[in-house]
Every structure is written in C-alpha cells, then in structure tokens.
C-alpha cells in the first residue's frame, strides 16, 4: 500500500506512518494533524546537521541558540529530559512526549514535574542550593549581568527561605510543588503557546497529511 511505498522511498526516515502518528496523538494533547505538523518540524530539526531522522544534541543546540557549539548547562538538561531512552539522540516519539508537557493544555502537575527534573541538575531527587547557584551564575554569565557574590547569596537565601520548608538546604518535590503553586509565573517557560497553533506554523504538513480533520 501507500505506506510501503513511503518506507521504500525514504528508508528509515519515514518510519512514522498513520498508525504511529495516531498513536502519538492518542497519548498526547495533540491531534493527528498537529502530530503531523510536529513531524514537519522534527524533520527540519533532525536534518539540520546530520540527515538521519534523529535529533542530535548539536542540532538541538543549533535550533535553540543558533550555534552548534558553545557549552550550555540548560541545553544538556533539556536534551537529557527529551532523550527518554537515554541513547544520545531524540527520536520523534520522544520529541512529541516532551513537547506535550509544554502544551498550553498539559496538566500543571506535568509541568511542575518537568521543571523539577530540569533544575535537579545532578538528579539527586532534590534541587540543591549549589545547583541553584550554578544555574543563576550561568544565566548571569550569558546575559553579561554582574552581581556581587553577596547579592547572589542573598537572592538564594531568600529563595530558600521561601521554598525550603523543612530548612534542610535542599528543595524536595513536595516543597517544589508548594513553592511553584504559590508562584505560578515560575512555570511560564513550561508553556509554549505556539503548540496550540502548530498546524498554522507548519502548514506544509498538509502536503503530507494522511488525515483530514
């Protein structure tokens, strides 16, 4: 049938037929057409350096920071969280699963959890003071902002006074949840409004669609 033709023509790159795409739609906030539009985006990102249908770290870096090099703490974390199978590349299903968390209609609980794992740099199950300091320093460096160490410590003290309810110097999952629910603006970067209009951002999916919704 049509799908066999696609497979032969594009080898491994078009492994995602209608069945896989609708499966991804079922397990996410996305419709089949939106998953198809995401597939257009995925194809673009996954062929920017090595055209193999997988997103490598350098490709994610290139998309996010317009340069395939330059070290970035957050890129490492984002890549790590997107790469569910931990095999060093982002596959399309992983891409959809991760972006699903950033959907405007995704449960807040999922966003809270994703942000926690993002900030738990060493994956100890806690956001530690040192990690927070490391992240703030990274941000100050990239934005050429200068802050004295005293001021930096004061900001972190104040943050921990608010977030670290049991005062043990680290923020656990429950404390994080309480903290974020009191400061919902901290989750703003966990929502990408674009995902609601992904089919208009990537209208070219129409040429490849297998369903009309």
């Amino acid at each position: 049938g049509c799908c066999d033709f696609h497979k032969n023509k594009h080898h491994k790159k078009l492994r995602y037929g209608f069945r896989e795409l609708s499966q991804l739609a079922r397990e996410s906030q996305f419709t089949v057409n939106e998953v198809e539009a995401l597939y257009e985006l995925f194809k673009k990102l996954s062929s920017s350096i090595i055209d193999d249908g997988l997103i490598h770290k350098e490709e994610l870096q290139l998309a996010l920071f317009k340069s395939p090099h330059s070290e970035n703490l957050f890129l490492d974390r984002v890549f790590y969280l997107f790469d569910e199978k931990k095999n060093g590349v982002i596959e399309f299903d992983e891409f959809v699963h991760a972006l699903n968390v950033f959907h405007p209609y995704a449960p807040t609980e999922d966003k809270i959890d994703f942000a926690f794992r993002l900030y738990d740099l060493r994956q100890t199950g806690f956001i530690e003071r040192e990690e927070v300091k490391q992240m703030v320093i990274a941000i100050l460096l990239e934005s050429d902002m200068n802050l004295s160490d005293d001021l930096l410590e004061a900001i972190i003290d104040k943050t921990f006074a608010d977030a670290d309810a049991d005062n043990d110097g680290k923020i656990n999952k429950e404390e994080w949840k309480d903290f974020v629910l009191r400061h919902p603006n901290l989750l703003k970067n966990m929502t990408l409004p674009y995902l609601k209009d992904i089919t208009t951002v990537f209208p070219s999916f129409v040429f490849n669609t297998e369903v009309e919704e």
Partner: peptide
C-alpha cells in the same frame, strides 16, 4: 532591588530556558 527577585524567577526568565526558538521564530 534584585534581592526581591527569587532565583527561580531569574532562571525561568532566561533565554536559555525558552524553547520557543525550536519553532525557528
């Protein structure tokens, strides 16, 4: 004044933390 800001506010506002660039905006 910056002391009134919480550390996670700084982090979450950072450009690095914005995945919007994925869409090639």
């Amino acid at each position: 004044k910056p002391v009134s800001m919480n550390a996670f506010e700084l982090i979450s506002r950072s450009q690095s933390f914005n995945l919007e660039n994925l869409f090639g905006k």
